[in-house]
């Protein structure tokens, strides 16, 4: 089995992150205009369309995912949850705290947060709303996970970049390619170093080529036991 590891963007040295979308339904959000008879100076009003299934289990349901785009309104947001039934009927879920159809969205600590500030919670506008009493608490809606995958390519790159002394767990490991800048295979000992380091990491170099114009090192490497 080819070697596997937590994936890293080898060119940038950054962890690859992935969102876990399994089993998640993201609801639609619509920003409403002024609502007559409501406090339009303090609140902006919106509507979230939820499934009939969500509406049926609403008393037990504690959270929902929604995408709310950046809007330059420095007002708190009140939303109502609109249920569209399979028969085409529409109704709004009732907030048990005040028997209205409106829910105030607050930050994760229950404090005031304005619509324009939502981007500080999730820059992509993906949110998780969690019911807390009669309010909905705002959390980032992205689950960060570290994917695991084939790691031969990233191992090659990191082995080339690492210099002896820079990996504290393996202090003598690393080709330290930067020491061979503008070098060649013939008289710098690079070929020997490459073979030794890759051999120690259970890899076999089938072919190595250095482009003298770009300085790029091209390696054809396979795993010894892969």
């Amino acid at each position: 089995m080819p070697r596997q590891d937590i994936l890293i963007e080898a060119d940038y040295g950054e962890l690859v992150t992935a969102d876990n979308l399994t089993g998640r339904t993201v609801c639609d959000f619509t920003l409403l205009g002024r609502i007559d008879g409501m406090d339009n100076e303090k609140y902006a009003y919106g509507e979230i369309t939820v499934s009939e299934h969500f509406g049926a289990r609403f008393p037990e349901a504690d959270s929902l995912h929604v995408r709310i785009p950046y809007t330059a309104f420095y007002r708190e947001l009140k939303v109502r949850l609109r249920v569209m039934t399979s028969g085409g009927d529409t109704h709004y879920l009732v907030n048990p705290a005040d028997n209205t159809s409106w829910f105030v969205i607050r930050d994760r600590n229950g404090a005031q947060i304005r619509l324009s500030e939502y981007g500080t919670v999730d820059a992509e506008g993906r949110f998780l709303l969690v019911r807390c009493g009669g309010d909905l608490l705002l959390f980032g809606g992205t689950d960060i996970d570290l994917p695991i995958g084939a790691a031969l390519r990233q191992n090659e790159v990191f082995l080339l970049k690492a210099s002896p002394g820079s990996l504290y767990q393996h202090p003598t490991t690393g080709v330290g390619l930067i020491d061979f800048l503008h070098g060649n295979f013939e008289n710098t000992g690079l070929a020997v170093r490459l073979q030794r380091e890759f051999e120690n990491d259970k890899m076999v170099i089938n072919n190595a080529y250095m482009n003298s114009e770009t300085g790029e090192l091209l390696l054809d490497v396979t795993e010894r036991d892969g």
């Binding site: 210099s163 002896p164 002394g165 820079s166 504290y168 202090p171 003598t172």
Partner: peptide
């Protein structure tokens, strides 16, 4: 603690400075 590592670093003239 690790005599071999010290010897290799000394032999190759490597002073760790990450």
């Amino acid at each position: 603690i690790d005599t071999e590592t010290v010897a290799i670093l000394h032999r190759d003239g490597i002073t760790p400075s990450g």
